[in-house]
Nucleic acid binder design. Structure first.
Lengths: 125, 125, 125, 125
DNA sequence: GTGGTCTAGACCACC
DNA sequence: GTGGTCTAGACCACG
């Protein structure tokens, strides 16, 4: 798994890391039972504070993505693959809803929104 | 003009207010020369600090939407319709960027995202 | 004398008016003994508050450009023509000093400053 | 970096500070990545309110000179040298505009203004 | 520790 | 009355 953090991002460090771990799970790169690095190791790898990683793991545990056990480490939890596919769609749908809502409010046609989508999709893959 | 603010929102108060005023301008509800409420009146109407409204008006002035003059008040500035169209696009582009970023991260194809867009656009037309 | 006031200007109304009256005196359009309009007439002509004109006349009197006498009106005071020429230069020199000081600080050559001056001088006479 | 503020100046505190920081960046005294003092430290050093420094940093961030991140601090941002050159020009142009405006109003020829510029530029070389 | 937001007051210049 | 600036606090998220 490749985690990239940037101080140019709007998101705080902990959120950047969380998002990328979640994405790896949704993409299937991280599967049921996989062991995540220990807090200290991960922190030194990413060059961030252990507090930041502690928060990441704690957040992911609260959201049901991982399971931490003292003395053992942090593991990826089982997620049904159908649910997983649904989850991916849901994430996009949620964000797209806001776009469409705003577009309608500003009276921008679907064609125009589509153009923007196409342009953005072709940028720097 | 109807401004709704919520302490449940992610956005700080000043941003919530700014966004709604901008939306009103972009929609044409607020036009060239219209007088906005005085900072004190607006603050008491929305039940926020005068400094919060001061910040809203000051930000909007920096972005060229309004013009404030001591002793006179704060007015909506003329924006030529081309700039206005640009501004509307920019708002959508900003929001769409996040969608595309997430979609790419989750390896969702443009076709799939397009489907979601189409479905959402046809809802509650 | 033609006074133009604009709500687009950075300067407050009273300063815009003062500057133009002073300029008219320096240019020789207003001469020793000329009678300025009464406060009320002038205010209604320019469509500003009488308080604003009162301030203008009071400032100009303090700076020695005019003389007000109750019941008579406000008159332009005598200024020696040599002094007048000097005054014009002094005004420009004062402002130019700041330009040169800044240019030197930012290490901009005289040639470059000269270019800027030429461009600005050719704009909209 | 030496910041000098005066309550005699026409400019409000926040502007005086902003100008001097910008000048330091334009001169190269402050470079890409340099850390500015924390708002609290800076405020107590200059003996002004933290909100005044907050405004300074926030304005500089909006103008693209610095980047602030909660928990980390405020850093000088990279500006490519072309932009920097532009910025320097803009500063001079701004100031020169006022000179030219006044000169035109007083009917002083470009030649005369040029003379003044030359004299001032040769002083205290 | 850092910056980000917000409040409740105050004084000023301008109209 | 209007906006413009400033202070002295406070609480929050982040590292």
């Amino acid at each position: 798994m490749n985690i990239v953090i940037s101080n140019q991002s709007q998101d705080p460090l902990y959120l950047q890391i969380e998002k990328q771990i979640k994405a790896a799970i949704l993409k299937g790169e991280l599967k049921d039972g996989d062991l995540l690095p220990s807090i200290r190791v991960f922190a030194s790898e990413l060059n961030v504070s252990v507090l930041t990683i502690r928060r990441v793991y704690s957040d992911l545990e609260n959201e049901g993505f991982v399971m931490s056990q003292a003395g053992l480490g942090t593991y990826i939890k089982h997620v049904n693959s159908e649910l997983l596919q649904d989850a991916k769609y849901k994430v996009i749908e949620e964000k797209m809803k806001e776009v469409v809502e705003t577009a309608k409010m500003l009276e921008i046609s679907k064609q125009e929104v589509d153009e923007i989508l196409t342009i953005l999709y072709e940028e720097e893959q």
